[in-house]
């Protein structure tokens, strides 16, 4: 690194500072909105994979197999470049030309659907960990299937899977960087842009790294708080 010319103040100069801020905002926006898709959808699919109905189980399994087995980068490409070509001509044209924020919308949608498949597996394993006994006990008491899930199984399952769900939530922040491949100006792509303009590579990527770490640490803290608040004494061992 003998000849590298460190230039930290450049990050505070216009327009680079603004780029970092806007990139960070996009990263958070993509991650949060994708999570809002992933969590309910993933929960629904996870539940579908645990019910008695064979059809629902098949649909859930199919979804998880498709979305979990295709690399996220490839999925981004498929949604952005291939799917619009398969749509009816007018709709495809609308998606390509008139849909608001086409890159951003596609990225959020794609990341949300992908993460949903991972959340679904966590929910399914949470439900599996409870065992069949509680389900039968609930049914013996005359609860409907919905009530068994709502009042017996899910409250415990969600508590069990808070630690792995934390990882998925962190993953959504980190995976949002792949949105740059379809042209969303999130944090990583802004770091790249600064690098291209100024060649200050180390500074730009250092600040991106620090911001990713900061936001993921915040998520970890948040999930710890949720875990602590929702703990039912005597049910789950205390974990980190």
């Amino acid at each position: 690194m003998g000849s590298y010319n460190w230039n930290w103040p450049i990050l505070l100069k216009s327009p680079y500072f603004g780029w970092i801020v806007s990139g960070f905002e996009y990263t958070c926006l993509i991650a949060v909105l994708a999570w809002l898709i992933a969590f309910p959808l993933g929960s629904a699919i996870g539940i579908a994979r645990s019910v008695d109905n064979r059809f629902a189980r098949a649909v859930g399994t199919f979804y998880v197999d498709i979305f979990r087995n295709i690399p996220l980068l490839v999925q981004m490409f498929l949604w952005y470049f291939v799917v619009p070509e398969l749509l009816p001509h007018d709709l495809g044209r609308w998606v390509k030309r008139d849909m608001p924020y086409p890159q951003l919308t596609t990225a959020i949608f794609c990341l949300g659907l992908y993460t949903a498949s991972r959340v679904a597996e966590q929910v399914r394993s949470g439900l599996g960990a409870i065992g069949e006994g509680q389900r039968y006990a609930g049914m013996a008491m005359g609860l409907t299937g919905f009530q068994v899930y709502r009042y017996v199984l899910l409250p415990v399952a969600y508590r069990i899977i808070i630690p792995p769900l934390t990882s998925e939530f962190l993953g959504v922040f980190k995976n949002s960087s792949l949105a740059l491949t379809i042209g969303v100006l999130e944090l990583t792509s802004q770091a790249r842009q600064i690098e291209e303009y100024t060649f200050a590579s180390f500074e730009a990527f250092t600040v991106a790294t620090v911001l990713y770490c900061a936001v993921t640490l915040l998520v970890i803290l948040l999930m710890r708080v949720i875990e602590g608040r929702t703990r039912i004494p005597g049910t789950i061992t205390v974990g980190g």
Partner: peptide, 8 residues
């Protein structure tokens, strides 16, 4: 460019 010449 001028900006790039600061680094290399």
């Amino acid at each position: 460019t001028i900006g790039r010449s600061r680094q290399i």
